[in-house]
C-alpha cells in the first residue's frame, strides 16, 4: 500500500483505546486505494494490526461493503427490501439487469459497472432508491434509473 495510506492508518490509532478498533476504517482506506482488499493487502493489514491474517479476512467477508475481489469502476446498488419492493424496486432492478446484461451481483464484461441489490438503505419514504458510487438516488422510476446508469463512463 502507498505510504500515504499507511500514514493515514497510523493516525487512526489514537482514536481507539485498542489498536484493533481502527481496523474497519483502515480497511476502508486500503479499499479506497485498490478498489478491493485481496489476500495480500489483508496480510499487510494483519501485520500492521498485529493480528492473524484470518482475523482480517473474517472481518472483510462479514461486512457487505468490503470487497475481496476486484469490482466494476462504478457500483450500482438497488434496494429491494420491503418498502422499496412495495414501490416497484423489483421491476427496476430487472430493467437494469437487462440494460447491463448482467445479473445482480455481477460486473459487466468491460469492468464498467457492478450491479447489486442491497438491503434497506434507510430511504423508505423516498422509495425506490439506488446507491450509485455512494450517492443516493431516490424516488426513482425506470427512465431515470436507466438515464443515471447510462451516463456512467
Amino acid at each position: 500500500m502507498k505510504p500515504e495510506t499507511r500514514k493515514k492508518i497510523d493516525e487512526l490509532f489514537r482514536h481507539y483505546p485498542e489498536r484493533r478498533g481502527a481496523l474497519l476504517p483502515a480497511i476502508y482506506l486500503v479499499q479506497e486505494e485498490f478498489g478491493y482488499v485481496g489476500p495480500e493487502a489483508a496480510r499487510e493489514l494483519a501485520e500492521i494490526f498485529e493480528i492473524a491474517p484470518v482475523a482480517v479476512w473474517e472481518v472483510l467477508t462479514f461486512y457487505n461493503m468490503f470487497y475481496t475481489e476486484p469490482q466494476g469502476r462504478h457500483h450500482v446498488y438497488v434496494c429491494t427490501n420491503l418498502p422499496c419492493s412495495l414501490r416497484g424496486a423489483r421491476p427496476l432492478i430487472r430493467c437494469l439487469e437487462e440494460r447491463l446484461g448482467v445479473h445482480a451481483g455481477e460486473t459487466t464484461a468491460d469492468g464498467r459497472i457492478t450491479l447489486g441489490h442491497e438491503e434497506c438503505l434507510g430511504s423508505c419514504g423516498t422509495a425506490p432508491v439506488m446507491r450509485v458510487d455512494g450517492v443516493y438516488h431516490e424516488n426513482l422510476d425506470l427512465e431515470r434509473a436507466l438515464a443515471i446508469v447510462d451516463q456512467l463512463d
Binding site: E119, C120, C124, G125
Partner: peptide, 11 residues
C-alpha cells in the same frame, strides 16, 4: 446504524 427496514428518521 439505523438498519431496521422501514426506518429512516436518524438519517
Amino acid at each position: 446504524d439505523e438498519s431496521e427496514p422501514g426506518s429512516f428518521k436518524d438519517r
